[in-house]
Computed example of a mutant assay.
Amino acid sequence: MNRPMRIKLRKRGVRELLKSQEILDECVRVAQEKAAAAGPGYEADDGYVGKTRASAIVYPSSSAARSDNYRNNTLLKTFGSALKVRKG
């Protein structure tokens, strides 16, 4: 029987990966895709690299979109399918 392969991650390498340009580009791409899926009045920022990782934000940019998001949880529903954890 073969023993299972063990992988040990280096903290420095993971930190560099989370702050990399490739991860930032992917965050921005997903944010723009979700902003378009949410409908008119929603926008995505250009992303940024924070203290621990890269991220991007989707936000309602008009009062109509803000009202829509408040009443219908549009952004939560848009991102919800990607954030659910499936059990079983």
Rank of each mutant, 00 (worst) to 15 (best):
R29K: 15
P40S: 07
A44Q: 04
Y70Q: 08
A56H: 05
R53N: 11
S67G: 10
E33G: 02
Y59D: 06
Y70N: 03
V14A: 12
C27S: 10
V30I: 10
K84G: 04
C27V: 08
R53K: 11
S61G: 01
E22C: 00
R10T: 06
L9D: 10
N73P: 02
R10F: 06
K84A: 05
R10M: 08
D68H: 08
V58C: 02
N69H: 07
Y70L: 11
K87A: 14
E33S: 09
A64Q: 01
C27K: 07
E43S: 08
A31Y: 00
A54G: 01
L75R: 01
K8V: 15
E43P: 02
I23G: 03
Q32C: 06
D68L: 06
K19Y: 09
A82N: 10
A36L: 13
A35T: 08
R66G: 05
G50P: 05
G50T: 12
N72S: 05
L24P: 07
A64N: 02
N69Y: 05
A36S: 10
R66K: 09
E26C: 03
R71L: 03
E43C: 04
T74E: 07
S63C: 12
C27A: 14
A35G: 05
I7R: 08
S20Q: 14
G13E: 14
P60M: 08
L76S: 11
S67H: 12
Y48Q: 15
L83V: 01
A38D: 08
K11H: 13
A65G: 00
E43T: 07
K84H: 05
S20L: 14
I23S: 03
N2W: 08
P40R: 09
E43R: 09
E43N: 04
E26A: 12
E26N: 10
A82D: 14
P60S: 05
K34F: 02
N73K: 14
V30Y: 04
M1E: 13
K87N: 14
P4G: 07
V30E: 10
